[in-house]
Design a protein around this nucleic acid. Structure first.
Lengths: 206, 206
DNA sequence: TTGTGTGAATCGATTCACAGCC
DNA sequence: GGCTGTGAATCGATTCACACAA
């Protein structure tokens, strides 16, 4: 079993390893990799060793091989379908951004004025009433909620009832879901407030 | 000293408390507040007690008072100036969103075509060359990097050299900063990959 | 009687430090 | 000789369970 804290760092390791592959580096030490990822070498070794024994003592890690193993573990050797709901600026950013390992399969919005508009790649904005049908046609889709907070729970229920078990939520609202559904939250306001807290601390002690 | 894990939850408590204030609730128990915030009541009580003794045994917490104390602790009783760099969809989302407790003071972009355009509130897009001067005119500004990864470090250096000590980074890149500068990272690709990992686990055990 | 505040126990993650292998 | 992999120690966060105040 891989610790949750380790899983949260695998994407960073994967990105750094991809950059190393790109630049033609073939072997890397835990010290170097850790520096590039912004963690300590002890943490990095502990993390990687929980995936398996992929290094060589006295030498380091073979970049290609390690990169592949991390990708395999993360499940990004295949492509995952994304379903984006809410085509405000945030939703649009995601659709255009399209991270590697993911493919925007469908885009939905409640606004009739937006329905039918085409976004990148010949993708057309669909109405929420079409969501269940479209999602049921996908396997292991990941839902992305980029709606206002007031609509988030309703959209979430729609996703869950259509079989989605992984949700990324940008709306500042707590979503109620069954235990077998995973929700990750990205909350800009929270991040800013945490920064503000520390900024204030600095100011008080200054 | 307030534990870091507690600080990260204060914004959620504050949001829930604001909603309760809004709906006219005057007293709330740790059980109710915890349910609304999506944490256990033990955790919530431990968190709040590290701020001070703001509850009444046998009764609960006075909503107005607690909300004010949390806001005070977070430092959002005043307004913090944001400086946004990069006016892609993500940057635009932030400018339009404008969370409570923050005010977008200036927007920058490297693209000459965007410079001079006006975004909301009579705010005009400025060139990066103007950043130091503008930022130095602000106190305790928070920098928001919404540029491509390739420009992130350069922009970061510019911010740091202009006196910014709190940065929210949306670019998928590790930023090198002095120890007295705090960087928080929001990484969409990482979040999706973590979801994909668990989705894959479910599929394998199914 | 009710629900907060908190010692004590537990759990998980990080760090240390070195045995083991190339 | 050098670097990985990992027991053992440490640290921080969570949970338990109850004394205490209203």
């Amino acid at each position: 079993m891989i610790p949750e804290a380790t899983i949260a760092r695998l994407p960073i390791y994967h990105r750094v390893l991809s950059e190393l592959v790109e630049s033609g580096v073939s072997v890397v030490s835990s010290e170097q990799l850790a520096a590039a990822a912004g963690v300590t070498s002890a943490k990095l070794r502990r993390d990687l060793s929980s995936l398996g024994s992929y290094g060589t003592r006295g030498v380091g890690y073979e970049v290609d091989y390690l990169s592949y193993q991390v990708a395999l573990e993360l499940g990004i050797s295949r492509d995952w379908p994304l379903v984006v709901i809410g085509l405000g600026n945030l939703g649009r950013a995601l659709v255009h951004y399209g991270p590697r390992g993911f493919r925007v399969a469908a885009v939905f919005d409640a606004d009739p004025a937006k329905i039918g508009q085409s976004v990148q790649d010949g993708l057309e904005v669909l109405g929420l009433d079409q969501l269940p049908e479209v999602v049921r046609g996908l396997t292991s889709a990941i839902g992305v909620i980029a709606t206002p907070a007031s609509a988030a729970q309703e959209v979430c229920d729609l996703l869950v009832n259509s079989g989605v078990r992984s949700i990324l939520n940008f709306a500042p609202a707590l979503l109620a879901v069954p235990t077998d559904v995973e929700v990750r939250k990205v909350d800009l306001a929270s991040e800013l407030q945490i920064l503000a807290f520390h900024e204030q601390q600095r100011r008080e002690t200054a």
